[in-house]
């Protein structure tokens, strides 16, 4: 029953979030602030993780396909498709839920327990909309870029690792990542990143917005927010993959 209560309250919150902004200029300013805060500050970690994962995947594919019957282009192809389809969308969203999500919950939760949200409400500001809307828009906006960045750096990481560890030649790898390329995979994944971006911003925002208590509860809410966001990401991954790919 608790579950339905949360679902209901989540949608009540969203209704408040998507009300018409009071003053567009203030929202635009918040939006740019959030894009910087949540997006630009995530580029570093996305690049690092993608390079390593790309490298690891190349080694694994090479190891699993160390059979003279398989064409060696398969290493590049496998790495590419894994990045395109799952890693750079789903896995990255899971990682971002940890980074961005916990940030959002603790920021909003702290505003709640220190009465800053009440303070906005008393001024006559729609607090849900003012605080949460710019975060959702910012995260949904940046996620596709992070996805593209991740695919790119994953492939680069794979290339360097492949050459340095001598498991694949540059030519085979480059041929591989161009072989049997299906543009729809990119399309499909970008749709997923938009959905995941919405989840990564709105679910933690929900947990922060309705925190009750003090600093301890804010910490607990952050943990709960990340866990629930992760579950929802995987759930929607399943649904979207079934709907759009199969």
């Amino acid at each position: 029953m608790k579950f339905f209560f949360h679902i209901g309250r989540y949608f009540v919150m969203l209704k408040k979030v998507f009300a018409r902004p009071e003053k567009y200029r203030m929202y635009i300013r918040q939006l740019f602030h959030e894009i910087e805060n949540l997006g630009l500050n995530s580029i570093g970690i996305v690049v690092i993780i993608s390079v390593f994962i790309g490298g690891i995947m190349v080694i694994q594919f090479a190891y699993n396909m160390a059979n003279p019957l398989y064409p060696s282009e398969l290493v590049g192809l496998g790495t590419r498709d894994t990045l395109l389809l799952e890693f750079s969308s789903t896995m990255l969203a899971l990682i971002m839920a940890g980074k961005i999500g916990s940030n959002i919950t603790s920021e909003i939760g702290t505003m709640r327990v220190t009465e800053q949200i009440d303070s906005l409400e008393i001024m006559g500001v729609n607090s849900a909309s003012y605080i949460i809307l710019p975060k959702i828009v910012a995260v949904v906006f940046i996620f596709p870029f992070l996805y593209i960045l991740s695919v790119f750096f994953g492939l680069v990481g794979g290339l360097f690792t492949g050459i340095l560890s001598d498991v694949v030649t540059m030519k085979d790898y480059i041929d591989g990542i161009q072989f049997l390329f299906i543009p729809y995979y990119v399309m499909f994944s970008i749709i997923k990143t938009l959905v995941f971006g919405f989840l990564v911003a709105s679910v933690p925002a929900y947990f922060g917005y309705y925190v009750q208590g003090g600093a301890l509860e804010v910490g607990k809410a952050s943990t709960r927010a990340v866990v629930n966001t992760n579950i929802l990401i995987l759930f929607f991954d399943l649904i979207l993959t079934r709907l759009l790919l199969a």
């Binding site: 702290t110 220190t114 009465e115 800053q116 009440d118 303070s119």
Partner: peptide, 10 residues
Amino acid sequence: MVFQGGALFD
């Protein structure tokens, strides 16, 4: 409104 804890935007 002046809140018990100040409630300034930090």
